[in-house]
């Protein structure tokens, strides 16, 4: 892999931080199709990593392996020092430390916005209800929709739903946030409101791993961009390196199609 000066600088900046997510030779098969081919990467604490690539390249599969929505079949995944194995306790711990935002929002349609957010803090983190609710209201304030607390998800627009989903994940006070194409299912005019929330989050210093096609977002806030194709990480670099001077042909081709 090629690293230019900017990337080296970025690496230096990140080098002294702790490892947050470590993946070593992660393999994943669906029947006879290999979705991940020995993915190896480390994401540091407080880093914002954007994963991009053509559809079917395995980026969603990878991110879903990290909180074991999919079970990887080879290699190792370590999140915040906890290895992701068959150990029930480790799975529980990792899931309560890793928040995830889905493409289809996946809010619980039978619960109000407030209940959606407080469910996990109350029943997983064992918080008193009053405390959980006040935190939920604060989070709704933070994502810009404090007035929607009593509504049901079905009554909100797509952008609002996705912001509720972000608030729901944040309510668990996660150390890592995973975003699986958070804007792909949104109408164009709603993408910005979600991206704004994500930018604000990125600046707050939380570790983020984002699968997205929003190159503007990547350029603005990403510490590093990873390009995947065919189940492998093809190229890793800072935004400047990635957009101005990509080394791999496959990256160039992808960028020419998307920009």
């Amino acid at each position: 892999m090629n690293i230019d000066d900017a990337t080296a600088a970025a690496n230096d900046r990140l080098a002294d931080r702790d490892d947050m997510i470590v993946c070593v030779n992660v393999d994943k098969f669906y029947g006879d199709f290999q979705a991940l081919k020995g993915v190896t990467a480390t994401i540091k604490e407080g880093e914002v990593a954007v994963v991009c690539g053509p559809s079917g390249s395995g980026k969603s599969t990878w991110i879903r392996c990290i909180n074991r929505l999919e079970v990887h079949q080879g290699g190792d995944i370590v999140v915040d020092g906890i290895e992701l194995t068959n150990d029930l306790r480790n799975i529980e711990k990792i899931r309560s430390e890793v928040g995830m935002v889905f493409q289809q929002f996946n809010l619980f349609p039978h619960l109000t916005v407030l209940d959606n957010i407080t469910l996990a803090p109350i029943w997983v983190r064992k918080k008193p209800r009053a405390e959980a609710e006040s935190m939920a209201r604060a989070l709704l304030e933070r994502v810009g929709i404090p007035e929607q607390a009593e509504k049901f998800p079905g009554q909100l627009s797509g952008g609002q739903q996705q912001r509720v989903a972000i608030a729901r994940s944040l309510a668990m006070e996660p150390r890592v946030m995973l975003f699986d194409e958070p804007t792909s299912a949104l109408d164009p005019e709603m993408i910005k409101e979600v991206l704004d929330v994500m930018k604000e989050l990125a600046r707050s210093g939380i570790t983020m791993m984002v699968v997205t096609h929003e190159m503007g977002f990547a350029r603005e806030v990403a510490d590093r961009i990873m390009f995947m194709e065919g189940g492998e990480i093809v190229e890793v670099g800072t935004p400047e390196h990635f957009f101005t001077n990509p080394t791999e042909d496959r990256t160039k081709l992808f960028l020419s199609q998307i920009l």
Binding site: A15, V22, V24
Partner: peptide, 8 residues
């Protein structure tokens, strides 16, 4: 350095 697999 950053992508070298740490020993697990």
């Amino acid at each position: 350095a950053i992508n070298s697999p740490p020993s697990i």
